[in-house]
């Protein structure tokens, strides 16, 4: 028993020290791991480290550490799931119901999209956005200041080509496109 407890605490410390790392690092997998690997890894974590298993024999501080580590691992597992397509093909039976599934993100904003009056944070940027994309984005800003919407759109599109995952850039593009439509 005591060895399990020590192992779980060591694992929790490892996870917490890797916070902010890519999902596979947190789940202690290699970068080429599949969703199945991630699921197995998470199941193993759940069976050994789920906080409910330890609530009666750990101090509150230890339990908090294990809960945080477990929650972080769950977040990493979710990241895996949302970024990987499951291999199993959809059957015709459940295709009928897919209409209710969330649609693809809109590329273009519908309706007015002027920035809201209060400051709200814009989409993810910097940490994952690569420097080249940021460079294009800065060029777009310069173009915008000149009032050159078309130039700005081109630069943002270049940025998106370098960093297709960035929600921040997508949003920026939609905003500028709306501005352009309003202007013309």
């Amino acid at each position: 028993m005591s060895s399990t407890r020590a192992e779980v605490l060591l694992w929790a410390q490892r996870v917490m020290s890797r916070k902010g790392s890519p999902a596979h690092t947190i789940l202690e997998l290699n970068p080429s791991s599949t969703l199945d690997d991630a699921q197995q890894a998470f199941y193993k974590i759940a069976r050994i480290a789920h906080p409910d298993l330890h609530r009666n024999h750990m101090t509150p501080e230890e339990l908090e550490l294990v809960t945080s580590a477990y929650s972080t691992a769950a977040g990493a597992y979710q990241e895996f799931r949302s970024s990987t397509q499951r291999m199993k093909p959809a059957t015709t039976e459940n295709l009928a119901a897919v209409g209710a599934a969330p649609a693809a993100p809109p590329r273009r904003a519908a309706g007015p999209t002027t920035p809201p009056p209060s400051g709200i944070p814009a989409g993810t940027v910097d940490q994952q956005m690569n420097p080249r994309a940021l460079l294009y984005y800065r060029k777009a800003e310069i173009a915008l200041r000149r009032g050159d919407f078309k130039g700005a759109i081109l630069q943002i599109k270049m940025a998106i080509a370098t960093d297709p995952a960035s929600a921040f850039l997508r949003t920026a593009l939609a905003e500028v496109e709306t501005e352009l439509r309003k202007g013309s």
């Binding site: 597992y77 979710q78 920035p115 814009a122 910097d126």
Partner: peptide, 18 residues
């Protein structure tokens, strides 16, 4: 946090000013 993700769960994302 996505629908149907396991709980307890924790996720941090970095945002910036507009």
């Amino acid at each position: 946090l996505d629908k149907n993700s396991p709980i307890p769960i924790e996720r941090t994302k970095v945002f910036t000013t507009a």
